[in-house]
């Protein structure tokens, strides 16, 4: 894996919706490249046939009964919202 370039950092930052100042991009590129170099130590190990481990415990999903347990708490939840009107969360125009 080649070190990450500034263009790639900008692309990833866009995917992650992070505004990064242009002058910071080289720093990020350097740090991210170093981290990737660190994690690439994994490549030294052959993991053919090893089952990936997504969870520490070998358990299965528990299911809950189909019951309504939540009541309307809109005012409570929207008290901490940056911008609401008529019960709606407001955002800059969504273009479909």
């Amino acid at each position: 894996m080649m070190p990450l370039g500034t263009a790639e950092v900008a692309k990833i930052a866009h995917l992650a919706r992070l505004a990064i100042r242009e002058e910071e991009v080289p720093d990020y590129a350097r740090n991210l490249s170093a981290i990737l170099e660190l994690v690439e130590q994994m490549n030294a190990v052959d993991t053919t046939g090893v089952t990936p481990m997504a969870h520490p415990l070998d358990m299965v999903q528990r299911l809950r009964a189909d019951e309504i347990s939540e009541s309307n708490q809109r005012e409570h939840f929207q008290a901490i919202a940056p911008r609401v009107d008529a019960g709606l969360y407001l955002v800059p125009k969504v273009i479909e």
């Binding site: 809950r64 009964a65 189909d66 309307n72 939840f77 969360y89």
Partner: peptide
């Protein structure tokens, strides 16, 4: 229903909330 009156902490993606699967959908 009136807007956002049937959106609980989980549906709103509040920090720290977790999903539990409904048996009926399965």
């Amino acid at each position: 229903a009136e807007p956002n009156t049937q959106a609980c902490a989980i549906d709103l993606g509040m920090p720290g909330v977790l999903p539990v699967l409904n048996r009926e959908v399965v």
